[in-house]
Design a protein around this nucleic acid. Sequence first.
RNA 1: GGCCCCGUGGUCAAGCGGUUAAGACACCGCCCUUUCACGGCGGAGUCAUGGGUUCGAUUCCCGUCGGGGUCACCA
Length: 552
Amino acid sequence: MDYKDLANLIFPDAKDISYYEEKYPERNLPEGAIVTRFAPSPTGFVHIGGLYQALVAREVAKKTGGVFFLRVEDTDQKREVENGVTGIVNSLKDFDMAPDEGMITDTEEIGNYGPYKQSLRKEIYQAYAKYLISQGKAYPCFCTPEEGEEIRKKQEAAKVRTGYYGVWAKCRNITVEEAYKKIENGESYIIRFKSPGREDRKIKHKDIIKGNVDFPENDQDIVIIKADGLPTYHFAHAVDDHLMRTTHVIRSDEWLSSVPLHLQLFHELGFKAPKYAHISPIMKNDNGNKRKLSKRKDPEAAVSYYKEEGIPVNAVKEYLLNIANSTFENWRRANPDKSMDEFDFQLNKMSVSGALFDMVKLLDIGKTVISKMTAEEVYENSLKWAEEYDKELLEMLQDKEYALRVFGIERGNKKPRKDISKWSEVKYNIEYMYDDKFYSKEQEYQYQVIADKEDIEKILNLYIEKYYNDNDDKQTWFDKIKELAGEMGYAKEVKEFKANPGMYKAHVGDVSTVLRIALTARANTPDMYEIMQVLGKDRIQKRFETAIKNLK
RNA sequence: GGCCCCGUGGUCAAGCGGUUAAGACACCGCCCUUUCACGGCGGAGUCAUGGGUUCGAUUCCCGUCGGGGUCACCA
């Protein structure tokens, strides 16, 4: 009786691994093409760090004419969440990052290297586990979880390394006969990898991002097949990334310390190991301490947050790309109108330490991104966001022609206005341009320098009756306000006022402020000429009348 | 605790033995025909720390301190 008999007893129906090796041949890709993947577990929550990894992985694959695929790691049935896959697929779609291969809905997939859902690959893992057993490189372990716990306690008490290794690996040296008998007797077991490693030996590993890292060899007989017949992460990683012909494993750096194990697994399985790039996580400052963005504590940890807030997709991506390669920022300044896909992303230039998440900067990028859009694009995006998150805004946007005029204010010129950083700010931004919104609430008119109510009333009346004309061009419009200022005894030029402050009550700027506030009830607005053009004389007049009434 | 990684201004960071130590966000001031925003100009602010090596260290080595990761039949 030998290892083969044991392997046959454990996995009688498993295919020979040559079947899979042939079924999933090396990919026929151009020289230098990189194959990457995004491999989340479907917990129903997509972390911004996950999106970050996916963005980087996709960027690298795209750049080299390779493949970016999505694999769902659902080997932990306890964590299974309904529609978890849909959440992942949709998040990638929302960010315009759909994979070339892999899951495209909860149940459907594309590509020739599937299934791309690990729970559907059970027989594949078992075939490779069988292979390992038949080679004497893996063995059944009959220790119960409770026994494992006991071993660990003993190890802790003895102050030695914890784990299933060396003399602690009780089942490692069970004879084939003994194992055979236990299995026939119905004892339950799991499959462990028989590690050939020694803790006192070092291995060298070159990570694309972290650089040279030395580790002790792995000597842990880790579990490869759990009691439920499904593989653990480590085993699935080796089998899948080999069979799916992944060239570069781009993943979170919490996996860095598992590299010795993974390399060993690849070696013992007879696979060529992929290259690894371990990405530092996105952090957050929590009372002076850095910590990972937390699903529970930080709303911005969820990718859904960005959608809900209406932060433009490209702003999020550019921000993430900037964390990944900080030279992106300089490139962006030099190429303000190019698509970010043209940026020459470098995996090996990624930061080795984790960056603190900076919402202020993200929002600044949001402003820039939106400022570059046409009124039409702003309209479409606002509408899309409003449909899902803001009924009131949606209503306001029904009159598209008018909305386009409002969004067109100070847009499209060489120095476009940068005042909207996310779609959820749109409503506040344009509200005062809508009469029903404007009149539906009690406005507060805070006239600033000019406080004399009679003067204010006079300015408003005089302006609308004597000076304002819808057909004036901007210069004429401007000159007329100066004339009005002069007629009322205010300085026509600010400089003049500053030179002789005693000669005037105030200056033309203060007069404008009165007009602006009567018009919008706001101290800060975009260009007043354009606002007036959109409003038109009748509406301007009505707003002035309302403002005057409010004075009394 | 063992093992591993990291440490340049408030934040993201460039830098690879000799630099006035880039740039961006944020902050402050000035200018930009009248607000705000944009833009322009200017400003404040950094190489964690102690030892080496070197003619010379932010750059190389060691220690210290600080931060992070990992030690599951979770991924």
